Lab assay of single mutants.
Amino acid sequence: MTFKAIINGKTLKGETTTEAVDAATAEKVFKQYFNDNGLDGEWTYDDATKTFTVTE
């Protein structure tokens, strides 16, 4: 399945996608990506659209 992340950061904005077997796996991938890029913020997840949003 394809999962999307919308990034609303102070220094980084945009979208990225990942292929994962479930939402928990996708969340781990996205959180690692955000940690690697120095992002920290509020997380939400919309199961209907398979979209994570992080707002810094």
Rank of each mutant, 00 (worst) to 15 (best):
V54E: 02
T11V: 11
I7M: 12
Y33R: 05
Y45N: 00
T18W: 12
G9V: 12
Y45L: 02
G9Q: 06
T17N: 05
D46C: 08
E15W: 14
A23W: 10
K50G: 04
T2L: 12
D40S: 13
K31W: 04
I7W: 15
T25L: 05
Y45K: 01
T25Q: 12
W43C: 03
G38H: 09
K10M: 10
E15F: 13
G38L: 09
K28G: 08
L12I: 12
L39S: 04
W43T: 02
Y33S: 04
T16P: 03
E19H: 13
A24V: 08
T25A: 13
K13F: 12
E27R: 07
T51L: 03
L12N: 10
E19T: 14
F52I: 01
F3L: 01
D47E: 14
I6F: 05
F52H: 00
E56W: 11
F34P: 01
F30K: 00
L39D: 03
K31T: 04
L39C: 07
T53R: 05
T25M: 11
I6D: 03
Y45Q: 00
A23Q: 08
L12T: 10
D22E: 03
D40A: 12
G14C: 15
T44A: 10
D40C: 12
K31E: 04
T51M: 03
T55V: 10
E56T: 11
K13G: 05
F30M: 03
L12H: 14
T49V: 04
D40E: 12
Y33V: 05
A26E: 01
I6Y: 08
T49I: 04
Y33E: 03
V54R: 04
I7V: 10
F3Q: 02
M1W: 14
T11D: 10
A26C: 02
F34N: 01
K31M: 08
D40Y: 15
T18S: 04
D36R: 09
D36Y: 08
K10N: 10
T25K: 04
G9L: 15
V21A: 11
G38N: 10
T55H: 08
T44G: 05
F52C: 02
A24H: 08
D22W: 00
K4E: 03
T17K: 07
T2D: 04
T53F: 13
A48Q: 09
G41P: 05
K13L: 09
T18N: 02
T51K: 01
T53I: 08
T44Y: 10
N37I: 15
A23V: 08
K13D: 06
A5S: 02
A5E: 03
L39P: 03
G9P: 03
F30V: 02
T11R: 06
W43L: 06
I6M: 05
T17P: 02
F34E: 00
T18A: 07
T44L: 08
E15I: 12
A23R: 12
N8P: 05
T17G: 03
G9F: 15
T18C: 14
T17V: 10
E42P: 05
E27H: 10
T49D: 03
A48K: 09
K31C: 06
L12Q: 12
E56C: 12
K10I: 13
K13T: 11
G9N: 06
T25Y: 05
D40M: 12
K31D: 00
G38E: 05
K31G: 02
A20T: 04
Y33T: 04
T53D: 02
Q32N: 08
N37Y: 15
T16D: 02
A23F: 10
T25I: 07
V21W: 10
N8H: 10
E56F: 11
A48N: 12
A26I: 02
T2G: 03
G41T: 06
T25F: 05
M1C: 12
T51Q: 01
N35H: 14
G14I: 15
W43R: 00
D22P: 00
T16G: 04
F3H: 03
V54T: 01
T2F: 09
T17F: 12
D47A: 12
T11L: 10
D22Y: 02
T55R: 04
G38T: 04
T25E: 12
F34C: 14
Y33Q: 06
K4F: 10
D46N: 09
T55M: 08
W43H: 01
L39I: 14
T51F: 01
N37H: 14
T18H: 05
D46H: 04
N37L: 15
E27D: 01
E15Q: 10
K4L: 07
Q32G: 05
G41C: 08
I7G: 05
E42A: 09
A23E: 04
K10S: 11
G14H: 14
T55C: 04
Y33L: 10
E42S: 10
N35V: 11
E15C: 15
L39F: 15
D22K: 01
G38R: 07
G41N: 07
M1T: 14
E42W: 09
N8L: 13
L12Y: 14
K50Y: 07
D46Q: 03
T49K: 06
G41Q: 05
K4V: 09
A48S: 10
E19S: 11
T17A: 06
I7D: 02
V29M: 09
G14S: 11
F30T: 01
N8F: 12
L39G: 06
D46R: 00
G41R: 06
F52R: 00
Q32K: 13
A5F: 15
Q32A: 11
T55S: 08
K28Q: 13
A48R: 09
K28A: 13
F30L: 09
T2S: 07
A26Y: 00
A23I: 08
Y45P: 00
A5L: 15
T2H: 07
E27P: 01
A24W: 09
T17D: 04
K50L: 10
K50I: 02
E56S: 08
T55F: 10
I6Q: 05
G9A: 06
V29D: 04
T53Y: 13
T11Q: 11
N35M: 14
E15H: 09
V21Q: 12
D22S: 06
N35S: 13
W43V: 08
N37D: 06
T17H: 10
D22C: 03
